[in-house]
Design a protein around this nucleic acid. Structure first.
Lengths: 206, 206
DNA sequence: CATCCTATGTATAAGCG
DNA sequence: TCGCTTATACATAGGAT
């Protein structure tokens, strides 16, 4: 739809590719909005440009986040498996979070105006989804953070060990040195062939 | 685009709504595929029909799952940023437990039979709050994990510095030792008052 | 329902500022 | 990079099968 028919293949010219992207993106979003309204459906659209920029859109009941959650719950088989794995590796994670939120939720519960009816199932589903999302994120974050942490711990151990060796080396050096002095005091004079602290040995340590 | 111009509003007739959905859905997917190819971008499209049926589509590099993952990681940065803002403005808001919150939500569900009446807006609010909780938990978790990480990094730095000092100490010891020997060779005999390596100094380092 | 048809409304490729 | 215009290609509403 334009002056010329265009083949559906990657537009080689960067500039016109960008222009086309911009135009078609808005067209696509418009269409998405229309079908959402006309047909009363939820639509979520994610577009990542080649340069990594994100363009997202959603229409219909609920935010993009909610739609994605709904999608995830559709994929529950995999999800619950992932969650099980996450839970078994992450038991200690339990503990913290916000108080005001609790107050808000409680106040909401108490003050709820009452117009629309929600079924118990709807509510349960919501709770499950939120909980599921929380677990998945927890597991993923954990994994990402645990990795560098572990590396650092290993490094620390290594450094401590090295430190220990150095200390012992010094202690040994002192002792050997003390021995030399005794010899010197006993009358052994002259350039010593055996250094109190052997450079070669130390070089290895340094 | 059709015999008549159509207003963009929910099609009341169920049958034609379904027909339109089917037609426009394929059109939308076609467009999505086209922009993906033409402009070399990733596209993910999720559609939930009113009856809960899912139609998904993705094009470009990576599966739908991968695109969603990418979306999540894209979102996490903003989320934690938003949370930081929230936290800095609300210091006293600091800590609740997700377990408690979930218990409350669950209890609410259990103690309220199917006659609970909530407005849609209220429902959205509740969802948002729960989502916020999730974000706060995420941020708090981050903080907790970051702290030991930081500590370890500091510790590493300290150990490295200490190592450095120890090495220098050894080097100094060797030099001083070499000096003593020179003196001895030059005829200076007897117990030395100044140890090549001073114990007190080392003690501080050890 | 799904497909095909066709008159029409829309999206958009080019091009200009 | 953006907006605006125009000529065209496309999508699709309504209808038939």
């Amino acid at each position: 739809m334009g002056r010329k028919k265009v083949e559906i293949k990657r537009i080689s010219d960067k500039s016109s590719r960008q222009v086309t992207f911009s135009k078609r993106r808005s067209g696509l979003i418009k269409k998405a909005r229309e079908i959402s309204v006309l047909c009363d459906v939820q639509v979520a659209l994610l577009v990542f440009s080649a340069r990594g920029r994100l363009y997202d859109f959603s229409a219909g009941a609920g935010s993009l986040t909610e739609i994605l959650k709904r999608y995830r719950s559709h994929t529950e088989a995999e999800a619950s498996k992932a969650v099980n794995d996450a839970e078994s590796t992450n038991d200690e994670v339990a503990a913290i979070c916000p108080t005001v939120l609790l107050q808000i939720v409680q106040r909401f519960v108490v003050e709820n105006p009452a117009d629309v009816q929600l079924t118990l199932d709807d509510f349960v589903l919501l709770e499950e989804q939120l909980d599921l999302a929380l677990k998945l994120i927890r597991a993923r974050k954990m994994e990402l953070m645990l990795q560098p942490l572990k590396t650092l711990q290993e490094e620390e151990t290594k450094l401590k060990e090295e430190n220990e060796v150095l200390k012992q080396q010094i202690a040994a050096a002192m002792e050997e040195d003390a021995g030399d002095e005794t010899n010197a005091a006993m009358g052994t004079i002259g350039g010593s062939e055996n250094d109190p602290v052997r450079p070669e040995t130390l070089q290895l340590l340094l």
